[in-house]
Write a protein that binds this DNA or RNA. Structure first.
Lengths: 214, 214, 214, 214
DNA sequence: GATGAATGAGATTTCATTCAT
DNA sequence: AATGAATGAAATCTCATTCAT
């Protein structure tokens, strides 16, 4: 696939197309998405999408990669802005800013989960693996740093601790997003007003399990 | 929808149809599933499916409800067989038997996650909510019982603890299933041989956070 | 591909479909043929063709194989009806009846040449090879019989003679068909009235080259 | 159509465009050829082709006429260089040099046959007729000269003899090209090493049928 | 009750052609 | 003169659904 034509477009148009496609894929998944609907929505010719992206898969890959880029940029920003803070404070910030990010970019989250579970998209495997690895390394590195600073117990099995931490954070965000943006409103009453309570609760659990001196 | 005709069928045929439809929906999701493929697979007339279930949605509802029934039966059985055991032992059994169940019924799990994230299936909402509530109540009740028996700290916020427990268990099983049956092989090396290690590790973390005396 | 559905159809309908598809493929070649046109012509639904034949290639293979069958039947009939006659008489009959056949079935001839030269139809190779071999064997056998009967020179290299005979007959028919049914009317004035003259001329040339005593 | 712009181009560029278009048309036929592919291959703007040639048909006509010109030049050259030789020697040279020419210009041969049989290209008719006439006249003239020189039997019907000769030569080359460059490898084993044998065989057959004294 | 032929809406994709820059 | 973005008709193909037998 060759994005030259697409990249020559007016940035505003590029962005409109990204938004429209992200919306369609995030609402309907890969198989369910209709290029007909996307172009009707955009008011452009059907052929244009195929000129830009070659085929449906090309459009999808573009959307997915761009979405992943947006997430990575966010995570890197948080990481770099909090390097000097205490581990548990960083986690707290990560959660709060993560929630804020997902609220603003709920379609990205929705895209991610839809595709993750849609399966039979061979061409996503590598992407998922690399995303997971990056997320894993991201947390792993934070824990290692915390150990070296004496903020968490030094007898932790880092890989294992990363897994639990990753699970908890991920599941927390997932619960939050399903609650607020899923199709199936909810059980876990993670309403706006008590996000802080929930976050603090989670962090306090983590302290119990990980903090030095326990 | 009127299942009378279907219910009059030979039980074996009913079961073959359920299996074939479960397979198709779990592999392709709702939108991606093809009744053409199901009937070709079964070797029965296309018209029959429409006679039994009215339309595609009717077939899906039948399959989904039956799958949920199977999961509920399993959970009830585990609950009733372990009432007398210690809380952490029950959790351990729950995990081990949960893994065994999902291995045997991986299509049901796959159906569940696909549909959960596929969205735009209005008629699933209530089902999901009720499933979640039952699972929540199930764990909640276990924790309450454990508190009353003095097996876990009595200062726990039960709703909160249930949430964490639910998250961890769910995430654990999810990781395991993605690893073994997902399309995107993995990061977390939850191989057969060390399932026990993982389960024990998780339970020991729970003990740290919840057990009386910590 | 599974022709069951098609074979269940009314024989008349089957035949109408064969004729319409043969016409389209013979006039436009494989790539140029349009299933849209075929179904519009037939007045049936587009989906039906795909139900019968799976895809465009399936339809084509059906048409091509059936066309080949028709040609083979003709050749076998001529062979069996002329076994007792002298070699050169048989050739004469073959030519005259061949011309009559191609006039009646000019679309079959047109299909054959279009596809032969259209190339890039991988799935035709084997067919062409087998057709050629059969035609080759057919003539070879006739020559061998003629040798054994002492009707042609016994010092002939049979393979070589078959090649020349095949070439001449094929080229003769080709010239005739291009002249009468090709898109580019002609040079060789092989009009109806003097077909016999041409045939006799060709046969007399063959006698010169092959007949015993020359 | 107005080729002025095209003719003002750098000769090298003109040639590159001819080669690329010849390749596409010869590989895919007229209907199957894609201007998209041609310009992608050439790395020039799509609009340019339309500026030079007006439309697809204009491009095709240019390519086809130029290809015909190349063939004619070859035939004229052979004719003029062999005027003094014996008839059968000329035929032999014609065959050998024809094979060499087709090997070097197989795309031209392929274009010719593809278009000849593709049909429904009204604007090709006249061209084909004139090519055939030239080829016919070319051989006719050779035979007439041979008769006047006493190299072949004087009782030959020249038109008829020309037809047979044309048929044999054409069919010979066709068999050779199908064998070596066709999509359907073959029956007639006209391998490089025995081209001479075949040519001599054919010529000896001709001598039998035509040479004075037989 | 079971069958399976018929249907047509809608999906992805290709491509010649136009035209503003 | 050259470019290449925009276009929309038309192609192949899928599928849920209907209905006569």
């Amino acid at each position: 696939m060759d994005l030259r034509t697409f990249n020559n477009l007016d940035k505003k148009k590029q962005n409109r197309i990204f938004r429209a496609a992200l919306r369609e894929f995030s609402e309907r998944g890969y198989a369910g998405a209709s290029i007909n609907r996307i172009v009707a929505d955009l008011g452009i010719a059907k052929g244009s999408i195929f000129q830009y992206f070659g085929d449906k898969q090309g459009l999808f890959e573009f959307v997915f990669l761009k979405a992943v880029e947006i997430v990575k940029d966010h995570l890197k920003k948080v990481r770099d802005e909090t390097t000097d803070l205490n581990f548990f404070t960083r986690i707290e910030i990560l959660l709060v800013s993560g929630i804020a990010f997902l609220r603003k970019n709920s379609r990205i989250y929705s895209l991610y989960t839809k595709i993750l579970y849609e399966g039979n998209l061979k061409f996503c495997s590598d992407l998922f693996t690399s995303i997971r690895r990056e997320s894993f390394d991201f947390l792993s590195e934070m824990i290692r740093l915390a150990v070296s600073r004496g903020e968490v117990r030094s007898d932790l099995d880092i890989a294992c601790a990363t897994f639990y931490l990753d699970s908890l954070l991920d599941r927390f965000l997932q619960a939050y997003m399903l609650e607020h943006f899923g199709s199936h409103p909810g059980l876990y009453k993670a309403k706006d007003e008590d996000i802080n309570t929930w976050v603090k609760g989670l962090v306090s659990l983590l302290r119990k399990g990980m903090e030095k001196g326990n």
